[in-house]
Write a protein that binds this DNA or RNA. Structure first.
Lengths: 149, 149
DNA sequence: ATTTATTATTTGCAAAATGCAAGTATTAAA
DNA sequence: TTTAATACTTGCATTTTGCAAATAATAAAT
């Protein structure tokens, strides 16, 4: 029985490095944090500030400022919610969408690079395993979800 | 063909949450960063400051200060290298070892919790997959290793 | 044997990121 | 129509960061 924790520690650290490396698109320099925010805004359907902060597990006041920065960089747009004036709806600007897409492609390239060292069967197994893992973590209440405050 | 990046994004985010939650032992409050440092010092055999900074991909000046903090907290000990006086050897104090061990146990508990939602076969498959992934990432030079510079 | 480079680590400093407490504005509940 | 709750923002004060430069020690070159 091998050391489980070590296995995961190494894996997550490596993905962390991946994140660190790949975050400058054209002239714009995007931090990892910002890239994750862009990713989530793109993925969620017109989310509010609160919603994205929640999924990323970031303090809301910090997140508010992060959004301000992204708006200033002209990557994100804040639109008042039509029915509830307290809420702001987030979306990507054209430039933001471009940056998000480019980062996404980079990430895909990296991942394909990683998978190029496996045969098709191994690749399928690994992908299936990550899915299993995600499902299992979703079921585990006392860890792996948004940090408790 | 499903979205590979999303799969990995979710997984690493979840492990990030895991890290965020589990880092206070007894009275001592240890940040994730500090817990990773303790982990590496424990794992590597009498590493130098430089070595650990390298594996964690942290700027050396920042890391120097992190070590100072851990020394002040009485979790880490700095010993001058006998042959090369420029170098400091890092080791855990008794208390540091205790903290590291406790965190390790917590992590193992969390992981077991996650795996409890799988059957034995799935568990084996997932573990084998993580290993495959780590090996593949190690082979991939243009990502997943210590940030360049 | 001295000068010159390298290496390991530390500080100065200034910029950036964080989070709590408190604020505003708006909506929902009593 | 007062009271409570929600979504978001700002004021601070603290912490974290990293570059440039300093220090100290070893290695290489002359």
């Amino acid at each position: 029985m091998e050391n489980l924790r070590e296995l995961f520690q190494i894996m997550t650290r490596r993905f962390g490095f991946l994140d660190k490396n790949c975050c400058s698109v054209g002239g714009v320099n995007v931090s990892i944090i910002h890239s994750h925010i862009l990713y989530e805004i793109d993925k969620q359907h017109h989310p509010s500030i609160q919603q994205v902060a929640e999924t990323l597990g970031t303090d809301i006041t910090t997140f508010s400022r992060q959004i301000q920065a992204l708006v200033k960089m002209n990557l994100v747009k804040k639109t008042p919610h039509p029915d509830d004036k307290r809420v702001y709806i987030l979306s990507l600007t054209v430039e933001g969408k471009y940056v998000a897409t480019t980062i996404d492609q980079q990430m895909k390239t990296y991942l394909n690079d990683v998978f190029s060292h496996m045969n098709e069967f191994e690749k399928e197994t690994v992908i299936r395993s990550i899915k299993l893992l995600n499902e299992a973590m979703a079921k585990t209440s006392n860890c792996c979800t948004t940090p408790m405050r």
